[in-house]
């Protein structure tokens, strides 16, 4: 997952949220270190069928004038030595800054199969000690891993059939085509 990307539109944003995953944490009763799907971070908290929940999100998007842009961030990318590349914490405002400028139409982005990412120099890195190769690593996309991930997400969605909205399967297919 790159440091940040912007979904192409509301439905794509709902897909991005619906395919979130995480490691199990201490606040949950279970083993640490297991990756699990956690759509919109709501898997343990959605009080009804997740398929209906996805549909509700899609429906909401149709009712909003000019739906807000949806973004995905990942502060946790590691280098080959296992160190976090992005400094995180207070420095995360640099990513939020780009996001807000995108929302206002004053920052440029470039298309990738995942979504829109900042073009060079759009992310304010002034005063950060970040090597250019590290910046590149923060935005690297590995197609072979993503093709597996797309198939895996499709499998994950299947458990919510027949309530799963068709739109999410279309987003899944569209993403595969972009690779």
């Amino acid at each position: 997952m790159p440091l940040v990307f912007e979904a192409y539109n509301w439905n794509h944003g709902v897909y991005v949220g619906a395919t979130m995953s995480s490691e199990l944490t201490a606040a949950q009763y279970g083993k640490l270190g297991i990756i699990r799907h956690d759509p919109m971070a709501m898997m343990p908290f959605c009080g009804y069928n997740m398929g209906d929940y996805f549909q509700h999100w899609l429906d909401m998007g149709r009712k909003i004038n000019d739906p807000p842009k949806i973004f995905h961030v990942n502060w946790f990318r590691k280098d080959s030595d296992g160190n976090f590349i992005w400094p995180g914490f207070g420095e995360n405002i640099r990513v939020l800054d780009w996001i807000i400028r995108r929302a206002k139409g004053s920052a440029d982005a470039v298309e990738t199969p995942l979504g829109l990412v900042p073009i060079a120099n759009e992310l304010n890195l002034e005063g950060l000690n970040l090597e250019s190769y590290a910046l590149k690593e923060l935005f690297d996309i590995y197609p072979h891993q993503w093709i597996d991930e797309i198939a895996e997400n499709r499998k994950f969605f299947n458990q919510f059939a027949p309530k799963l909205p068709q739109e999410l399967l279309l987003e899944n297919e569209a993403m595969l085509k972009r690779f």
Binding site: M1, G13, V16, G17, M20, S21, S22, E23, I35, M40, A41, P68, K69, I70, F71, H72, V73, N74, W75, F76, R77, K78, I99, I100, A103, Y142, Q145, W146, E149
Partner: peptide, 14 residues
Amino acid sequence: CLSLPLYSGGVVHL
């Protein structure tokens, strides 16, 4: 007034 929903994974495998 909400400008932007934002998602993050906790994933490090991609």
